[in-house]
């Protein structure tokens, strides 16, 4: 079940936050900003920590189809905790989508692929209802009713 969605702009600022279910703690606006900033930093650091053995040899795991839009080839991708999982999708332009869901059951890699599919759909909605909105200023908080509604519809339909 999807708990909440965050969208971060290229510089790590939080531009959208939507609680879709209420299974987790409510955070204040300030805590949301801190979370976004932390994830933005950790995302970059995680790719620096790649073990040397993988750097030289292994190819990244074969990705699900349509991975061309995913600009995240070495950064942080998923976080698993006892109470929730978090998945991160980065577009080629550097916008990050964060999805917080209930803890993954079973295979973690397939859970990650499922989340990526949902995030890609959210990205499509973002492109359609935010970027094509003539009143939206880039990198600024998203206040678009239609986008809110479409996200809620998408999540309900899952």
């Amino acid at each position: 079940m999807i708990q909440s969605l965050f969208i971060l702009n290229r510089s790590g600022g939080l531009i959208y936050q939507h609680d879709l279910n209420d299974g987790l703690n409510k955070l204040s606006a300030n805590e949301h900003l801190i979370l976004a900033g932390t994830i933005h930093g950790v995302f970059a650091i995680a790719s620096k920590l790649t073990p040397t053995a993988v750097k030289v040899s292994a190819q990244p795991r074969a990705q699900s189809q349509g991975s061309a839009v995913n600009g995240n080839t070495s950064g942080l991708k998923s976080i698993e905790t006892d109470k929730f999982s978090m998945y991160i999708f980065q577009t080629l332009t550097g916008v990050k989508f964060l999805l917080v869901t209930d803890p993954a059951q079973g295979d973690l890699n397939s859970g990650c692929d499922t989340a990526e599919n949902v995030l890609r759909k959210i990205y499509a909605l973002y492109a359609d209802y935010v970027m094509k909105n003539p009143f939206y200023e880039i990198d600024m908080p998203i206040r678009v009713d239609l986008f809110d509604r479409k996200i809620a519809e998408l999540v309900k339909a899952l």
């Binding site: 995680a46 790649t50 073990p51 990705q63 995240n72 950064g75 998923s78 905790t81 109470k83 973690l108």
Partner: peptide
């Protein structure tokens, strides 16, 4: 709550 793991595309 406890953190169990995190993953990138490579490790």
């Amino acid at each position: 709550n406890t953190l169990n793991s995190f993953a990138t595309a490579k490790y």
